[in-house]
Design a protein around this nucleic acid. Structure first.
Length: 491
RNA sequence: GCAGACGUAGCUCAGUUGGUUAGAGCGUCGGAUUGUGGCUCCGAAGGUCGGUGGUUCGAAUCCACUCGUCUGUACCA
């Protein structure tokens, strides 16, 4: 056997995805709905690049052991480390700090873009994904946080998620700090333990009360038998925390007061607990949040491709980060903002059926039966006439000599209509207009017809005068659109 | 990172205690049909059995290592 040439294997890096036409259109539609809400709230767009100097992004400086832990980093030719951004908040803090003298505070801004994380990918979890953020920089008041939550709720509804199918959960980091203090976990020497406790609390919706109890104590065994070490708290401390996160604990501190103020704002603005509610188990990221934290959670079941119900968790979140700009400027610039995971949310909406199947119809296909220059010019002219009338259209660009293939192409491409003009029609100044949607239906109704009879019947095909091309096509397209509309409503 | 399961054609999967030339369905391509999609019929292409090494007369099958995928878990700024 002849030796095979060493063919290059085409492969996508793991954790990355190609996006189809449908995905791109659906994303564009989603993004535009989100943008409309943010614009209405008076936010302005800003864009920062995908790369930042690594030290500007946060605590991750590449070390020699794992230069890319968590982030994708490269060294510039002047040996400075740069990284792909892993969120849109740190770059915003950099942008604001760098332009602090030009920017009018409070600065209300939004932006969407790709972010990158160098970590283990999973289903619905990619190493490149899109986020859509909104932030108010330079506003210390709780009102700014409250506005964020309300805007998040409005956004969910603008995306077609009905009230009751989502909830914005709010908490205040200061509250949790108070709880930790109450069980004697204050001070630097307990920093690690505090983290473990916060992480355990964050898993309430995943593991339930009992799971969290285990993580606060000895530890917990997962389904594969692997053991996770717990925080090893005393049992009365565990009880205090459990009581607190399940809503029955008592505590007075600044965090609670702020939450009360927020609740009043929500009530005054007409947002009920079916939209936004205080939930003392919300933790969010551990690093930079200083006060309010909030997250958007979907309450409906999401089934994946295999038909399994999956725990979807949050589709967005944020909070107050008063220290992030100060790192650069030394000035106190309080800020609050949130981020929507566009890619994740889109997966969920797709499953909810809220993602309207693309309105874009495939182009009308002008078939080719005569390949000489003059004839090709005539076909191309038909295409241009249709395009001028605002109708998507294209001329067949493959091997025109196999006519059957042209219709097969149109069929698979989903073309609504095919235009046919052979020499017979040409001489009569006529065109054949074939309704491919109607034809598909006819074909499914008559499966036992032999091929010759099927072909000679020329299903769903009419003959018209050349001059009537645009009007006829438009008429058929309109009728097809009505049918689609009716079918959708009938569901 | 840790733990477990699984890797056979483009896809979904068969493949006997280790035994000749590794199969099927679907899909793809060609033909029946130089001017009509579907159905039908005929034919063809397509495989380093994830990789490397070992055991054996002989490995898709057994062993070791490795890579990859999936599931759980950890981390997630």
């Amino acid at each position: 056997m002849a030796k095979k040439p060493n063919k290059l294997k085409a492969r996508l890096p793991r954790g990355f995805a190609d996006r189809s036409a449908d995905d791109i259109r659906a994303t564009d539609e989603m993004v535009s709905k989100i943008r409309q809400v943010y614009e209405r709230y008076g936010f302005d767009p800003v864009e920062t690049p995908a790369f930042e100097y690594t030290d500007c992004l946060g605590k991750f400086l590449p070390d020699t052991d794992r230069p890319n832990a968590g982030v994708f980093s490269v060294q510039d030719d002047d040996e400075q480390w740069m990284s792909l951004r892993y969120d849109l908040t740190a770059p915003l803090a950099r942008h604001v700090s760098e332009n602090i003298n030009e920017i009018q505070l409070p600065y209300r801004t939004y932006r969407n873009g790709w972010v990158f994380r160098n970590e283990k990918p999973g289903p619905g979890r990619f190493r490149q994904f899109m986020q859509f953020d909104a932030d108010t920089v330079g506003a210390p008041g709780v009102q700014a946080d409250a506005e964020m939550c309300m805007m998040m709720a409005d956004t969910m509804e603008a995306l077609g998620i009905p009230r009751g199918q989502y909830v914005i959960r709010v908490n205040n980091r200061k509250v949790l700090d108070g709880v930790l203090e109450a069980i004697g976990l204050s001070g630097d020497e307990n920093a690690d333990r505090r983290l473990t406790v916060l992480r355990a609390i964050d898993k309430l919706d995943k593991f339930g009360i009992e799971g969290v109890r285990l993580l606060l104590g000895e530890g917990r065994k997962d389904e594969s038998g692997d053991f996770t070490k717990g925080a090893e708290l005393a049992s009365d401390a565990i009880d205090t925390i459990i009581a607190f996160v399940s809503g029955s604990g008592q505590l007075e501190n600044a965090g609670i007061d702020e939450l009360k103020t927020m609740a009043e704002i929500f009530a005054a603005c007409g947002y009920g607990s079916d939209q936004i509610k205080v939930d003392t188990s919300v933790v969010r990221g551990l690093e930079y949040y200083t006060g309010m934290v909030y997250e958007a959670e979907l309450l409906f079941d999401v089934t994946n491709e295999k038909g399994e119900v999956v725990q979807f968790g949050s589709v967005g979140g944020g909070g107050r980060y008063d220290g992030l700009v100060k790192r650069f400027t030394g000035r106190d610039v309080p800020a609050t903002g949130f981020s929507i995971g566009v890619s994740r949310l889109m997966t969920a909406l797709k499953n909810l059926g809220k993602l309207s199947a693309s309105d874009v119809v495939a182009p009308v296909l002008v078939t080719v039966m005569d390949g000489d220059t003059e004839a090709l010019g005539r076909y191309q002219k038909m295409v241009q006439d249709l395009r001028t009338a605002g109708i998507r259209a294209e001329m067949y660009q493959g091997n025109w000599k196999k006519f059957g293939n042209q219709l097969k192409y149109a069929d698979r491409r989903g073309c609504p209509i095919a235009i046919i003009q052979g020499s017979d029609e040409r001489e009569a100044g006529e065109l054949q207009i074939k309704d491919l949607i109607e034809g598909t239906w006819l074909a499914s109704e008559s499966t036992d017809v032999d091929n010759v009879t099927w072909r000679e019947s020329r299903p769903a095909q009419i003959t018209i005068k050349e001059a009537d091309l645009v009007d006829t096509v438009r008429g058929i397209l309109d009728a097809q659109a009505e049918d689609r509309q009716r079918a959708q409503e009938g569901q």
